[in-house]
């Protein structure tokens, strides 16, 4: 009986010590981790989309809540005005979720660029969505409010050879980004006014 109690006590004490230590470390590192993730995972895509911005879009970001989630918006200042924003979206690909970064020109509601941030597609086939810019370039200058579909489904986007599902996932992700943008546009504009 004594041994039993000892076991329970030791395990409990160890577990609580472990929990306490981890909570402390997590608290100390959580902000840095977020910044690091933004710089290294989404950073390249954001920089590519908002190229030429006079500010650092990763610093000038804001969050908006919508039904079922929260989204980060990255603001790019051009000619002294916060004219373009980039935000995240996702679509289902062949190997799981494909994370997208979609850039929009606020005034014209036009896509200025699409970049793939995270994915687990087949290397060399589906992964071309990230590495081959000619695929995502197709979205440029299109109206974000429209519906995007790949050509095999009767849409306007050329697929990546051998990666129909990946291409479809990206198209769906961009369409969803459009829907999100539409529903949040008033709030985005309000935020951008504050920004000035």
């Amino acid at each position: 009986m004594r041994e039993m109690i000892k076991m329970i006590v030791v395990l409990t004490v160890l577990s609580s010590f472990s929990g306490g230590l981890l909570a402390a470390v997590r608290n100390k590192t959580i902000d840095r981790i977020e910044v690091q993730q933004l710089t290294f995972v989404k950073g390249p895509a954001i920089q590519a989309i908002l190229e030429g911005a006079s500010n650092d879009p990763i610093v000038d970001r804001f969050k908006l809540e919508y039904e079922g989630g929260e989204a980060s918006f990255f603001v790019g200042v051009f000619n002294g005005e916060p004219a373009k924003i980039a935000f995240e979206s996702a679509g289902k690909g062949f190997g799981g979720e494909i994370g997208l970064m979609v850039g929009v020109d606020i005034k014209a509601d036009k896509i200025i660029g699409v970049g793939v941030t995270t994915h687990s597609e087949t290397p060399g086939v589906g992964s071309k969505a990230q590495t081959d810019p000619s695929f995502t370039k197709q979205f440029q200058d299109m109206d974000l409010m429209s519906t995007f579909q790949v050509k095999t489904d009767g849409g306007q986007i050329d697929i990546i050879t051998g990666a129909t599902i990946t291409s479809r996932g990206v198209a769906i992700g961009v369409t969803q980004a459009g829907a999100l943008y539409k529903s949040l546009k008033p709030q985005i504009e309000a935020k951008l006014k504050e920004f000035k």
Partner: peptide
């Protein structure tokens, strides 16, 4: 007990690496 101890330190390493050498 060993596993609890090891797992704790592994998670610490993971968090620290995420924060400093992403």
């Amino acid at each position: 007990c060993f596993i609890i101890i090891i797992a704790t330190f592994v998670t610490v390493v993971e968090l620290v690496m995420q924060a400093f050498t992403y």
